[in-house]
Nucleic acid binder design. Structure first.
Lengths: 139, 139
DNA sequence: TATTTGTTGATAATCATTTTCCATAAAAAA
DNA sequence: TTTTTTATGGAAAATGATTATCAACAAATA
């Protein structure tokens, strides 16, 4: 949250109430909200907020590396403002919940890949898909 | 190729020249072609082939688990008819080339995740992004 | 061969998300 | 305060890969 505000300031972006509200939603969200979800939460404080504003600000934060954008192939984007760097996810295919599991082995993999393939690896994406315990119980 | 034909037969799909041409492109492609790329290759043999036909057949093969569909968040789909099961990829962000690196540790990860999170993991997706040696040299 | 059923090809329609537009409002600078 | 610059809101438009449509065609079946 503080870091995000600083990043905005450093880049001459103005600190507006809407921006603060968006930052707050992102900082307080322990999940991985969608644009729509951020929109709904911001609207509880600022009922006139526009979807366009959310999109514009999410893009700004993403470009400032303050936000990890998780794009899925079905055009559903989700955001993580608490860990704005690549990390693995476990996605429930029923309720769309997303968790951050602890997996350490990835750094090693990247190094090994660089050696094996000659690629300069800059990013990665590791997602596991399945059904969460809650959704399993609901059957 | 043989396996794909069998799968089609077993499911009462007819073996048409266009289908065979698509299968051939998929089987012979060592890369990860896009629909557009399959289309272009099939057209060299069947100039009147329609894009719709490619889409329909790719969907059939995907549903028969004969084809791995790699959807990226920018709406670019790529296909692998040689290894129609989840496996890691290294993607060059410049030329869009895709390689299959050897990474074994994934099965263990899935097991560990099941234990940790209670999820029933059915699929995964591991992509590394970077620049391939050829594109690095071209700078 | 005649009949039935599945497939193709060409084009139009779709779809939801994301962008664009611009007048208004608000923040920073002078 | 006044001026300048940037952000917002509301609606409309774009986006563009994929899907639907359907007449014409081809493969399987009787």
């Amino acid at each position: 949250m503080r870091k995000m505000v600083d990043a905005l300031r450093e880049n001459q972006y103005r600190i507006t109430p809407q921006r603060l509200a968006i930052l707050k939603v992102l900082a307080e969200s322990k999940g991985h909200p969608s644009v729509e979800s951020i929109y709904e939460q911001v609207q509880t404080r600022f009922p006139t907020t526009s979807l366009a504003t959310i999109y514009k600000n999410v893009a700004v934060l993403r470009d400032l590396d303050q936000l990890l954008e998780l794009g899925f192939s079905d055009d559903s984007n989700r955001y993580d403002g608490n860990k704005p760097y690549d990390h693995p996810h476990v996605v429930c295919t029923v309720c769309r919940k997303i968790l951050d599991p602890d997996i350490s082995a990835l750094a090693d993999m990247t190094q090994e890949l660089t050696r094996e393939t000659g690629f300069t690896i800059t990013r990665h994406r590791l997602d596991f898909f399945g059904v969460c315990p809650e959704c399993q119980a609901r059957r």
